[in-house]
């Protein structure tokens, strides 16, 4: 596992959840320090799962300590004015659609499609079967699609 490559992904995951660059980076570094510090974790196949578990736990702890309520608008990239109108509208409707999803659903989309986390790792993170992961991802995408189409037309 390439640690530097995973750094960017864990950072993205934490940024998406914390919507603060410096906090996300601090927690990313804390995640890696804990990961590297745990020499007992030898199973190469589960390293990625372990990394995301640490990041998720740190994030939850941060939420608890700071009493933060997650606001997706701040985490997502606000569309720029120079973009085409169609693309801009699509992005806005996607952000709206994502707001209607639960935190877990958004997280699953992020892990699978933005961070390219393999399905077996996601299934172990959520303690569900691979088939269930596929089914849920399909369901979430369908929900997003319906929401976006409902908004646009």
């Amino acid at each position: 596992m390439n640690l530097e490559e995973q750094y960017d992904r864990i950072y993205k995951y934490l940024y998406f959840r914390l919507h603060d660059q410096h906090t996300a980076e601090d927690l990313t570094q804390e995640t890696f320090l804990r990961f590297i510090g745990s020499r007992t974790y030898q199973d190469e196949n589960r390293q990625l799962q372990y990394l995301y578990t640490i990041a998720r736990n740190l994030c939850s702890q941060y939420y608890r300590d700071k009493m933060i309520v997650f606001n997706i608008d701040e985490a997502l990239d606000i569309p720029q004015l120079e973009e085409s109108e169609q693309s801009l509208l699509e992005r806005i409707s996607l952000i709206d659609a994502l707001q209607k999803l639960s935190l877990e659903e958004r997280e699953m989309l992020l892990l699978r499609y933005v961070n390219d986390v393999p399905v077996p790792v996601i299934s172990r993170l959520y303690h569900i079967s691979r088939f269930a992961v596929y089914r849920r991802l399909k369901g979430i995408l369908k929900k997003v699609k319906e929401e976006m189409e409902g908004e646009n037309g």
Binding site: Y11, L76, D77, P79, R91
Partner: peptide, 11 residues
């Protein structure tokens, strides 16, 4: 689109 809107500032 999801990948685009989830872009983050460089660490």
């Amino acid at each position: 689109l999801l990948k685009e809107i989830c872009s983050t500032p460089e660490p």
